[in-house]
Design a protein around this nucleic acid. Structure first.
Length: 290
DNA sequence: CGCTTTTGACCAGCGC
DNA sequence: GCGCTGGTCAAAAGCG
């Protein structure tokens, strides 16, 4: 499914004969036409960037196959996993830094991991005012426990998939120690039923104004994607697959589709985007007039 | 009434 | 063996 760019073209096909036009106005029309072409080119570049993002995500998924998340000792694994995740979340994230801590022992553990249930981790950025531990990801979850862990004062919530009674998938959600606005969601196991919805969103209905799209997110790395728009809350997906041998391909593709879709819709549906676009064009016109 | 959430209790694994 | 910790259970409460 290829996202379509919003219709950013302006209807400049106005018959000059129907208007009282002088040379300056004709010149202005030419300028606007040129601006339109530039915007079209910008849109094409945007589409190209989307493709690159998709390819980058694929690459990161492959590169992160080498990192072991699970070991025979749960606590050690949890600690090393936390360490690695934090590196991905931090400012100076890079895969080499994370993969450099792989040892021979961890490789053995990694091999052991092959026989264990699949584990995947996502970071979901929430608004600061959103204190809930609920992350809607298209499945129906039933909370069966909550615990305050030693290394993180924020409680960790335990969920089971309640969509299918026999579904073995479990989910843990806990706020990040470094950034409480980030929900660390850990999935264990595989769903033995289909998706309800192939989307990832947050249980929040914030409608407050969002920062400009061009604003940088505090969480940005080659492994994360932050989506901001006026039509949905800010969502940051950390596409870290800590030690997975094979990520569920359907899940992977749906996430990628979601990312691309959201980026496209965020731009094209966001009134701010269209407003800024119109402002930029009108600004050019005024600038030319003065 | 059935489902979900909450929360204290319980259990198992691990380190000392 | 004991204490700590993470994970799970299950009864009670809440909700539609």
């Amino acid at each position: 499914m290829e996202p379509t760019c919003g219709d950013t073209s302006l209807d400049l096909n106005v018959d000059p004969s129907t208007m009282h036009m002088d040379g300056a106005l004709v010149e202005e029309l030419r300028r606007l036409s040129c601006e339109n072409k530039r915007l079209t080119h910008l849109c094409e570049n945007y589409m190209a960037l989307q493709k690159q993002l998709s390819q980058l995500i694929n690459t990161n998924f492959d590169q992160q196959l080498d990192y072991p998340i699970e070991s025979s000792r749960k606590r050690k694994a949890a600690e090393s996993d936390q360490c690695c995740t934090n590196k991905f979340v931090g400012v100076s994230n890079n895969n080499a830094e994370c993969s450099s801590i792989i040892t021979e022992d961890s490789f053995k553990k990694y091999k052991d991991f092959n026989s264990s249930p699949k584990v995947s981790k996502f970071l979901v950025k929430t608004e600061a005012s959103n204190n809930s531990l609920y992350v809607m990801d298209g499945y129906q979850w039933r909370k069966y426990g909550q615990k305050v862990t030693r290394d993180n004062p924020s409680p960790r919530a335990y969920f089971r998939c309640s969509f299918a009674p026999s579904c073995p998938v479990k989910k843990k959600v806990q706020r990040s120690l470094e950034d409480p606005t980030i929900l660390v969601t850990t999935y264990e196991g595989e769903h033995n039923h289909g998706h309800q919805r192939a989307e990832i969103s947050l249980v929040s209905n914030q409608s407050e104004a969002l920062p400009p799209l061009k604003g940088s997110s505090p969480v940005s790395s080659p492994n994360t994607a932050t989506i901001r728009s006026a039509v949905c809350p800010t969502v940051t997906l950390d596409l870290v697959k800590s030690g997975l041998v094979e990520f569920e391909s359907a899940q992977k593709s749906s996430i990628q589709q979601f990312l691309v879709q959201q980026m496209a819709t965020s731009l094209t549906r966001d009134p701010n985007f269209t407003t800024e676009l119109a402002t930029a064009i009108s600004g050019k016109i005024l600038e030319a007039q003065w």
